[in-house]
């Protein structure tokens, strides 16, 4: 809990400083847009956070976005599928890929980094091939206006992705912090062997985390596709897995597994989005965008390890 409090403090300070330097930060338009982005990024960051808690990693998220986005466009506009079916297809696809990843990790004992690195290359290539390297879009959304409204509309004045994130977060908070399954996720991440010796099917637990991450990636992929409204297969979703990893780590997840929280991941996601926003609003050259983010994540993790070491010394 202390960990989350520290990073939350950093977020609050950043928000206040930015708002003072450029009041446009707290304009309705800017806040709405930031909330929209936090919604989209938060959903798949939670998914990746679960995988990280089991001690795994998923590098293929960004490429899945490209593949899912391309297929969503084709399904809706070229095949003219009934929109719920198209949405279901696009959610099922990353889940199926997650199932494959999980099987390769648990049955074949290939390292998650390798499995999902290959996924990153594979799905990006497939997306470009299927789209013929052409940008895909949704036109004027004829026949699927409901889906578009669900993905990019508003509810009680809040952008839909943000609303969906709130729902997802509440559910996932119970799953991770209150359910038997959540306890198993942490146990597997900390000591798979001892967990297996306690009679738990650890392979199933690990594999399921990739499928669950796939589900959340699938949902986020629809939101993202309608947010950008055009999918250029070679760049759509590029590096998004890294944003999620950064958010999770900032929020207290350990890449060694067994540590992390939903609240932490949410704050981490928000922090990264506010940072990007800040780069724009403060007139920092946008080419420095990545550099700023890298520096802040590094500082955050350094501060955390500094505090951690100090606490440890106190104990010893």
């Amino acid at each position: 809990m202390k960990k989350e409090l520290g990073i939350f403090g950093l977020l609050a300070v950043l928000c206040i400083v930015t708002a003072i330097i450029n009041p446009r930060f707290i304009s309705l338009a800017n806040l709405t847009n930031t909330a929209n982005l936090i919604g989209i990024y938060g959903i798949f960051s939670i998914g990746l956070g679960l995988v990280i808690i089991t001690g795994g990693i998923d590098l293929s998220v960004g490429s899945m976005f490209a593949l899912a986005g391309v297929i969503l466009s084709i399904a809706l506009r070229e095949w003219e599928l009934f929109w719920p079916l198209a949405a279901l297809l696009v959610i099922a696809l990353p889940m199926a890929l997650g199932w494959v990843h999980g099987a390769l990790v648990t049955k074949m004992r290939i390292q998650p980094f390798i499995v999902t690195l290959c996924g990153l290359l594979l799905y990006r290539g497939l997306a470009r091939f299927i789209a013929g390297d052409n940008t895909k879009g949704f036109g004027n959304a004829e026949g699927f206006t409901t889906l578009k409204a669900l993905a990019s509309g508003k509810f009680l004045g809040l952008p839909m992705p943000f609303v969906i994130l709130i729902v997802v977060s509440i559910i996932m908070w119970f799953v991770l912090h209150r359910s038997v399954y959540g306890r198993y996720l942490f146990a597997v991440g900390r000591n798979e062997q001892a967990t297996r010796f306690s009679g738990i099917n650890t392979k199933r637990v690990i594999a399921s985390s990739y499928i669950l991450a796939g589900l959340l990636t699938g949902i986020a992929s629809i939101l993202l596709a309608f947010y950008t409204n055009s999918i250029s297969p070679s760049t759509h979703g590029n590096f998004y897995e890294l944003y999620a990893i950064a958010a999770a780590v900032l929020g207290g997840c350990s890449l060694r597994g067994g540590e992390g929280s939903i609240i932490g991941i949410l704050i981490g996601t928000a922090l990264l989005q506010v940072l990007q926003n800040l780069v724009n609003l403060l007139g920092i050259p946008s080419s420095l965008n990545f550099a700023v983010m890298g520096a802040v994540v590094l500082l955050g993790v350094m501060a955390d390890s500094f505090i951690g070491n100090r606490n440890q010394k106190k104990v010893a």
Binding site: R183, F186, A187, R190, Q193, A194, T195, F197, S198, I200
Partner: peptide, 16 residues
Amino acid sequence: AEGLVTAMSIRENITL
């Protein structure tokens, strides 16, 4: 290595 998840609490280990 095999009997306990040492980074978890006594409670969490006993009920696992």
